[in-house]
Every structure is written in C-alpha cells, then in structure tokens.
Computed example of a mutant assay.
Amino acid sequence: MALADHELAERPLMAAWRRFASRRVSVVALVALVIIATAVAGADLIAPYRSGQQHLDHVLAPPGAGFLLGTDTLGRDTLSQTLYAGRISLVIGISVALIASLLGTTVGVVAGYLGGRIDAVLMRFTDTLLALPLLMMIILLARILGDSAADVVLVLSLLGWMALARIIRAKTLALREQEFVVAASSMGASTTRIMVRHLLPNLVGEISVAVSLAVAGAILAESVLSFLGLGVSSAHTPTWGNMIGGNEGFMTVEPWLVWAPGLAIVITVLAVNYVGDGLRDAFDVRGEGRS
C-alpha cells in the first residue's frame, strides 16, 4: 500500500536524522547544547544567587564552598553571573543567526530565481558589502547605534547575511532548472508560490547549517565587541563577552573571573560547530553511504 503524503514528507527528515545520529560527536555536542541552554534558561532556579547580587564582604573571594567560582570586583558570584550572562549571549547568537539567515535566504532565492537585472543588482550590492572590512564596519555601526543587546543584534545581523546569500543563490540557480520547478511554472504557479513551496524546502540543508554556524559566529563576535568595550554594556546586562572584557586586568591574579565565561564561550561555540558539521552531513544525501 502506498505511503500517505505526510509519511512521504517525513522520510527525508527521518533519513537526515539517521545520518546525524550516526555522528557521535555531533550527538554529544547537541546534548551539551541542550544542557547549556537549559542551565541558562533556568538560571533563576539553578544560580546560587540573583543576578547582580553583591556580597561586599566577599569581594574577589577565591573559589570555595560559598562561591564555587569565586566573586568579582563587586562581590558578585561568578557562577551566577555566568549563568545569567549566558541567557543574553545565547539570545544574541540565535537572534543574529535567524535574522541574518532570513535576509540571506531571501536575497539569494530572489536573485537566483528571478535572475536578470534583479540578480545583478542584488549580487553587486552583496559583493560590495563583502568587500568592506568587516570588523571595521561592525565597530563603526556599534559606535553609531549603541550598546544594548538589541543594537548588537542589529549590527551583526546587517553584516552577517552576505555569504549565505551567495550560497543560496548558487543553489537556487541549479534548482530553477529542475523539472519540478519548470512544471510548477508551466502550470501557472506564481513566483512567490514557487519560491516558498518548491525552492525553500530544497534549501533546508544549507539554511540549517548556516543558522547553526551563525550562532557560533555571533556569540564570538559579541564577545569580541564586548571585550573591546563596544558590545553590550555591563551596565545594561551581563554577557559572557563583557564579563571577560571587564575583568581582563585580573586575568593573572584572579583568573576565575575570566575562566568561567571563557570556557562557556569555548564549549558553546565548539558544540554549535560540531552540530553544524552533523547537520551538513545529515542533509548531504551523497554522504549517506559513508556513514
């Protein structure tokens, strides 16, 4: 008996999950990400102290029973601050990845499918932005816009979509010549319907990998900006980046001030990258035989 339509639609996803699950490193990385996300989301329940709570009689206390990771220059528990800071760092990473991927996918699909002058204009604009010194542009926009989390998300999103746009355009150029797209066009399907119903489902692999890797890139970029004093201000809210940036002078004498947020960044970025590698192989049907 023939499979139902929804069962047929699920088969590629099940095959992709099987390929992803065959990569143990990626599965471990995914579990680590879930643990990190759960810990920072539940900081109100897990953290020993409230965010910003000061213990003025324990300023710069070393790691011990009362403060597992010590305290900072204001007497705040480093472990609690790291958990609360992780919320903002992850939200920034995910927000930037989603917004930049949406922009890049839209530009790439429109340019690749419509072609002609629209393709030329969009790609020349994309190439122009790619030719600019990225770090300089990020610093310039950060100074212009401000130092809130929303400002950082906006800056990184506006400058983080171009590479994906070129990848999606190249894939779309190949897909638009496929029989199912030609058939849909000949049957009178609108341009929007073809893009949404026929092209986007075949770009899930590229988009998923781009989103996962963009999360890691955004977390690192926010950390660099905050370290330079141009990211999220610690006066607004703690992030892993401004925790490091505000305590770099104590790195040799009170290293616990930077170890905790630094390790959080390293572990999170590594986990995201390994998940991205797993997603790339999962959606690469040519790699199924190598699993």
Rank of each mutant, 00 (worst) to 15 (best):
S190R: 10
L135G: 00
L141Y: 06
N273F: 00
I219Q: 04
S186H: 07
A271C: 12
V285F: 05
A131Q: 01
V285M: 09
E10N: 13
A15G: 10
N247A: 14
A65D: 13
V181L: 14
A43I: 10
S212V: 11
V285K: 13
L279F: 04
A218G: 05
A41W: 05
I168G: 04
M14Y: 06
T128M: 15
S291A: 15
E222T: 06
S186V: 15
L200V: 13
T106D: 02
S291P: 02
T106N: 07
I267A: 15
D119L: 05
T128P: 01
W17R: 11
A210C: 07
R76S: 12
L98K: 00
V121L: 14
F125L: 14
N242L: 11
S223H: 00
I35Y: 04
S148L: 05
L175Y: 07
E179I: 07
T105D: 01
V211D: 01
H55G: 11
R76D: 14
A120N: 13
R18F: 05
G112H: 01
I168S: 07
P133R: 01
P62L: 02
L90V: 04
L130D: 02
R24H: 11
L30V: 04
Q81T: 10
R11S: 04
T252I: 13
E7S: 08
W259C: 04
L134P: 01
A39T: 12
L98Y: 02
A163P: 04
G108P: 09
A120V: 12
Q81S: 13
A2L: 14
R76P: 12
V110N: 00
V272H: 08
I219N: 05
R23V: 12
A271Q: 08
R76N: 09
G160V: 10
S148R: 12
A149M: 14
P133W: 02
R50C: 00
V34S: 06
A29P: 08
S186M: 15
R117H: 05
M187N: 12
S51W: 07
A100I: 02
L257F: 03
M187V: 11
R11W: 03
V204F: 03
G245S: 04
L145V: 13
L225F: 06
V96H: 04
R166L: 03
L213P: 00
V107K: 01
V181C: 09
G108K: 05
S89Q: 06
L130E: 00
A264C: 07
V196Q: 03
M137E: 04
V253L: 10
V153R: 05
A260T: 11
V27T: 11
S26E: 00
D119C: 08
A235D: 13
A16R: 10
V211Q: 01
V204L: 14
T71Y: 11
A282G: 09
A214F: 08
V110S: 01
E10H: 08
R166W: 02
D119R: 03
M162W: 02
L83H: 03
L13H: 12
A9H: 01
P48M: 05
L199Q: 00
M14L: 14
